[in-house]
């Protein structure tokens, strides 16, 4: 963070602080993007504008890469602990992993009434994966991003290479997950109730068949709101947290150290809470998808 303060001072000397703070934040909010240029060839976008022009046919290499790396690391670590675990008195790490396991298992047991052995592993995957992705927010904002920029500049010749390390501050990542959950809601609704049952739930609730249009007006947005709120809640919380870290880093000079600390402590609450909320809502939504409503 000392480097950061130096950078801020250097910025101040050049007399263009406001613009540079904006540049700093813009740089930190940009993604390392690989995609199709308007002329048709594929490559890394060198500026945020280029990334913009790529539109849909591009991939955020940094956030998706971290997301996959973190998910794989978590699963392989759990697998490693599970392989050497004993049924006798568990030691440190096994204890820790079992604690998480039992926590998730208990939440699924109380939140999910159906009999689907796939829901608990899903909840575990979501919970731990999101917690770890969120935790990347606690890595000081310039450590890995700064290092990547240096490597990008000196090894690959990319000036101001963007490199975002918190996957959940990328709306693509959170919505990617919430849409996957939405797909599961649709799949299990249709599987458990049949296509007719699912559609009748949309059309004949809550007011019965004579009020069908009203029912649709109520039920369809309710259904569609699920993935959107699920994805955007997580994104919004983490994006705001990240943005505040960036503002502190770019504007407070040396005072940023206690300010970072205070915000990080507060953020420690947000990180598991948002992961927990995402997991619980997934469980609740899928529970509703498995249960049919018998009120008429």
């Amino acid at each position: 963070m000392a480097e950061l303060a130096d950078a801020a001072h250097a910025v101040a000397e050049h007399g263009t602080e406001v613009l540079t703070v904006q540049e700093y934040i813009t740089h930190h909010l940009a993604y390392l993007t690989y995609g199709r240029f308007p002329d048709g060839h594929w490559g890394l976008a060198l500026t945020p504008d280029e990334a913009m022009e790529m539109g849909f046919w591009s991939v955020h290499v940094d956030t998706l890469g971290w997301s996959i790396f973190i998910g794989a690391a978590f699963l392989l670590f759990f697998l490693y602990i599970g392989k050497k675990a004993t049924t006798d008195t568990p030691n440190g790490m096994q204890n820790f992993v079992e604690m998480i396991f039992e926590f998730v298992d208990a939440r699924v047991a109380e939140g999910f009434n159906g009999k689907n052995p796939l829901i608990a592993p899903l909840a575990l995957t979501i919970f731990v994966w999101i917690i770890l992705m969120n935790t990347m927010d606690l890595v000081p904002v310039d450590w890995i991003t700064g290092l990547a920029s240096l490597i990008g500049e000196h090894v690959f010749g990319l000036e101001h290479m963007a490199f975002k390390i918190v996957p959940t501050t990328d709306v693509n990542i959170t919505v990617g997950m919430s849409l996957s959950v939405f797909a599961l809601i649709l799949y299990y609704s249709i599987k458990m109730k049949g296509i007719g049952g699912f559609l009748s739930e949309l059309a004949f609730h809550p007011f019965g068949k004579w009020m069908l249009p009203f029912n649709l007006i109520i039920e369809v947005p309710t259904l569609l709101a699920k993935p959107i709120s699920l994805g955007l809640r997580l994104f919004g919380n983490l994006y705001a947290g990240e943005l505040l870290f960036l503002l502190i880093a770019s504007m407070l000079g040396i005072v940023q150290l206690p300010a970072h600390f205070v915000w990080a402590v507060f953020h420690l609450l947000v990180i598991p809470l948002q992961a927990f909320v995402f997991m619980m809502l997934t469980i609740v939504y899928l529970n509703a998808a498995h249960e049919s409503v018998h009120d008429h």
């Binding site: 995609g35 539109g55 998910g71 990328d170």
Partner: peptide
């Protein structure tokens, strides 16, 4: 705020991790 292929990549990762978790870890 680009909405792009990343979310499809994340969805694929989501299902792969879920499958791996339920098959081997859980």
């Amino acid at each position: 705020m680009n909405f792009n292929l990343t979310f499809i990549g994340q969805s694929i990762a989501f299902f792969v991790f879920w499958w791996f978790c339920q098959a081997y870890v859980w």
